[in-house]
Design a protein around this nucleic acid. Structure first.
Lengths: 350, 350
DNA sequence: TTGTAAGCGTTATCAT
DNA sequence: ATGATAACGCTTACAA
């Protein structure tokens, strides 16, 4: 006769569970659970026993079980155009670190500036029952907008500050950046000031910057000069722009005195091409970029540029989310609108 | 008299579940489940009905329920020294994208080169029952080593290739990089070649590179010259190095002919300081960096450097993991050792 | 302050 | 090929 087979576990990971901890500490499982979620409501005596058991068993809470039971995981999803560019990396870093510090895990996906890929990423995140979602900018497709608005969780739009939109805004005004650059050059005495657009058509934030520039020019009774390069590669596009605006024989009669570029890549391409052609920068043509990329201080002449608050955006976005979730106490009153300033870094090129 | 209150749902997220899908499609829940996990084993007829139901209800699988039931979530954890630096961003990008493409989600944490923070991150990941873990380099503390080896899941060490270690290796040999740079300069006719260490003491990979350099020098009967800057800030450290090696009056008698720098930041600092001091580069002193940062082609003269295969590392690490998990068919035989080459980018500075 | 019971939404197991 | 049932490990709701 065969003994009844012992009730062998057929599922399970084999790791210690909260029940094992509770048993060892001689408390109820729920008390052990509370030890993690609301430590203040467990007596010191039991807390000590539980702590010892946790240590002995090397217990690590199963996030899946917790997330399932409470119907919301401690995760926050973020869709970013791309991770590896010089632009968003700082934001990701501070966003992730701030969330981690409070027990939340970042889920990251990149959209490569494609609305469809953004949609897919948001849809995938929904399966994680995220506590909140962060996206970049205000341009989403219908499906994404709908998912974001019906998800019933805090949504943060980063980078492109738009006070009239529904989601929490953490960013700066691209329009103001354009104004800032134009005013700076105007104050320095420049009058024939041009703006060079991004060659990537999808970069709508650059259009906002050129709008700001245009407004300031008109304000001073000056004619805006907006140039849109046709070359795709940013450095080449910058070269193309400065050739057209300052080097071409046609322009030689009345070359522009200063150029604002949609980003530092364009500005760098222009700066290098200009110098190679013998153009004196900033004497003959001043240059202002946008982004303050790592190479910008190293160019010769070093590049005057406007630095977006990438690190602050990530941190503040995370803090606002944590406040919304009740993890952190609410800061002030208007926590929904977070307009940050961009710093103009004055270097040699303008 | 009060009617008995209807059995209102008190838990649950309100979203459609797989049971709702099954009911609408008039199939068993498990069939609906299989429709996602093993589509080949569901008849075309039922598949169509399920697909329709999924679409109508906007069903999104709950990853927590799935992860709990199958005791392994579709997540992979990665601990990286830092997200925002120019070095690792490409790796994160390709790693994340490749995993996403196969339904896995990346969990990211940064260690800031601290072994203790790495340990905390790995511990936190364990709660997610990750299908695999990726770390950078071979230097972990005891606790981390133990967690990695007992986790019972594929572990990948990236960047620093070390064939004798247990985990899967995906990276390049820093020793070879040092050799590569030294041989290149030797072949160009340089003889008095120096190596400048990183000022960050924790950067042990740079030490491997200097070892490679040293070996080549001795191989040719040349005396190695290794300089360790004391300044912390990389650009300043580079400046300090070139002053000591090529500009100082003491050295003027027999200045070095070429310098290999531990990274492009140091090289850039040296290059700029050298030029400002009137040093002709590469005529009087050639410079080779490491990293191929974004600014390196923009310096004047542009920087000759060695480019580590950051994108490949991320992609191959992900592919090896997916193979180990059985998601992808195994490629070749020795899938554990992945030694990648670094490309020497010849520019103007050497 | 602590405990009991039920359920979160999925998949593994076994049966047909 | 399809389905019924029982976990998975935790937290909510309620009770003491």
């Amino acid at each position: 006769m065969s003994e009844p087979t012992p009730p062998r576990k057929r599922r399970g990971s084999g790791r210690a569970t909260i029940h094992d901890v509770a048993r060892l500490a001689e408390v109820g499982s729920i008390t052990a659970s509370r030890y993690f979620s609301e430590p203040g409501r467990v007596s010191a005596k039991l807390s000590a026993r539980i702590a010892a058991a946790v240590k002995e068993l090397g217990y690590v809470p199963n996030m899946f079980a917790g997330g399932l039971a409470s119907s919301h995981g401690r995760v926050v999803g973020m869709v970013i155009p791309n991770i590896s560019g010089p632009i968003f990396a700082n934001t990701i870093q501070t966003f992730s670190d701030t969330l981690n510090r409070h027990g939340y895990q970042l889920l990251l996906a990149s959209s490569y500036f494609s609305a469809k890929q953004e949609e897919n990423a948001v849809k995938a995140f929904l399966g994680w029952k995220p506590a909140a979602l962060a996206v970049v900018g205000r341009f989403h497709n219908r499906a994404t907008e709908k998912m974001l608005s019906t998800a019933g969780i805090p949504v943060v739009e980063t980078w492109d500050y738009q006070p009239r939109r529904k989601p929490i805004q953490v960013g700066y005004s691209n329009n103001s950046v354009g104004e800032q650059a134009a005013r700076y050059l105007y104050a320095k005495g420049y009058r024939r000031i041009a703006f060079v657009q991004n060659s990537l058509a999808g970069d709508l934030s650059a259009v906002d910057r050129s709008d700001g520039y245009e407004a300031v020019m008109r304000e001073h009774g000056l004619e805006p000069i907006i140039y849109a390069p046709t070359t795709e590669a940013p450095f080449d596009a910058g070269k193309q722009a400065i050739e057209a605006l300052a080097l071409s024989p046609a322009r030689r009669a009345r070359p522009v005195e200063a150029i604002i570029f949609a980003n530092d890549n364009l500005a760098a391409g222009a700066l290098l091409a200009g110098r190679r052609a013998g153009l004196k920068i900033p004497e003959q043509c001043a240059i202002v970029g946008f982004g303050d990329y790592a190479f910008s201080p190293l160019l010769m002449p070093s590049l005057t540029t406007i630095r977006p608050p990438g690190r602050e955006i990530g941190e503040i976005a995370a803090l606002r989310i944590l406040e919304q979730l009740g993890v952190l106490p609410h800061a002030g009153q208007d926590t929904r609108l977070n307009l940050l300033a961009c710093e103009l870094i004055e270097r040699e090129s303008a």
